[in-house]
Design a protein around this nucleic acid. Structure first.
Lengths: 218, 218
DNA sequence: GTCTATATGTAGATAGAC
DNA sequence: GTCTATCTACATATAGAC
């Protein structure tokens, strides 16, 4: 008789249901944080939306703030990978233009958002929340800034005479425009009367590339 | 003996202290709504910051939501007046350019914000909150859209072939850039390493005018 | 791993004294 | 007009049963 009988299930292996609950909790948290803001969303709302008991949200999320960080981080890492891959691929094809750089930065996100996954649209609101609030500066620093800095360096290389702060400023304007495209469609529709049209990646790139060129050019 | 002795103080005339308390409450609410968001700011925080009893905030503000609307409306009306006056003055001087239009729209705000009044900087955060959240669509409609629509019409007149939704979209990008200038200086500093430089009205106008021209031009 | 029950604090709002 | 005291509801978080 073995002294250490092998358990039928490996210790600490998460069950199928546990994984599903965890995923549903993160999705619900993403939706509600996006719609109501960090303070406006409640753990109870999230639990109800995910159809799990309240305590389980704490179990999987580790508190409201940790849950928020995890929700943001999940997509930020995926997006950074896609953006940097697009940038590397574009570099390999030849010299970069401003429009090509913005294409590498915007397209992965807009493809996801336009792909119909409403969670990716919710994420745009989260990025806007984090980007606007110095209280989340650590999230910006850890998750957004490395990739942003890479793109700023590339833009700066196209305009060697522009001071770094000016390049960063133009980049922030461009990101703000991208977030506006994703989060303020309802305002565009209200202002135009015309509800149609819809977002356009090429239009956004044209706006930002021309704006940056005007701000950074000689 | 007169039957109706004249009261020493007119009925319902607000006392000096009442007016001061009211102003302090609105200022404190503005600061805290801007920093913490609508849900994150509490009536109690506001009362403490204004150094008044909690009940007084309800008395003057009429509930949290009404207080928020009043705080936003107070500055929105002042700003709209200044912007439209600048637009009328510019029109009177001759034909408008895109850069001149953005100057009329941006300058009144940036002058106030750069003038050192921290309350005007807080207001930028409030505008960002309202503009990003469909839940406050009625504030946007009543307080922001009339002036915005006026400027969009003027921009559209410069590009008669551009569809209205495209003009509105370019305008929203531009407003987003302006709000980023006011609310995301900390991110620019973090990304550039260089904390210096600071915001530049001319730079913002150059960015937006060139972006709009590229997006709307033939 | 899952969930119930509950602890503890604080929210927005108001009734009524001054 | 001003302010105290308090109501009711709900927040996050956790302890411990299953």
């Amino acid at each position: 008789m073995p002294e250490n009988p092998v358990p039928k299930q490996r210790l600490r292996a998460p069950s199928q249901r546990s994984l599903e609950n965890r995923a549903r909790i993160l999705d619900a948290a993403e939706t509600l944080f996006a719609r109501e803001g960090f303070a406006g969303a409640t753990i109870r709302d999230i639990a109800r939306a995910a159809d799990v008991p309240v305590g389980l949200v704490h179990h999987h999320g580790g508190g409201k703030e940790a849950l928020f960080r995890e929700v943001v981080g999940r997509r930020a890492e995926e997006l950074s990978t896609l953006r940097l891959a697009a940038l590397d691929a574009a570099r390999a094809r030849g010299p970069l233009t401003l429009a090509a750089l913005f294409d590498c930065f915007f397209r992965p996100y807009l493809d996801k958002a336009a792909g119909g996954d409403p969670q990716w649209l919710a994420y745009a609101r989260l990025v806007a929340i984090v980007s606007a609030d110095p209280a989340w500066a650590d999230i910006s620093r850890d998750l957004f800034d490395p990739t942003a800095h890479r793109f700023i360096t590339e833009i700066g290389a196209l305009y060697p005479d522009a001071p770094p702060a000016r390049v960063a400023e133009a980049f922030i304007y461009s990101v703000a425009a991208m977030l506006a495209l994703l989060t303020s469609q309802w305002r565009v529709a209200a202002l135009a009367g015309d509800p149609g049209a819809g977002p356009s990646l090429d239009g956004l790139i044209a706006f930002c590339a021309a704006g940056c060129a005007a701000r950074l050019g000689a």
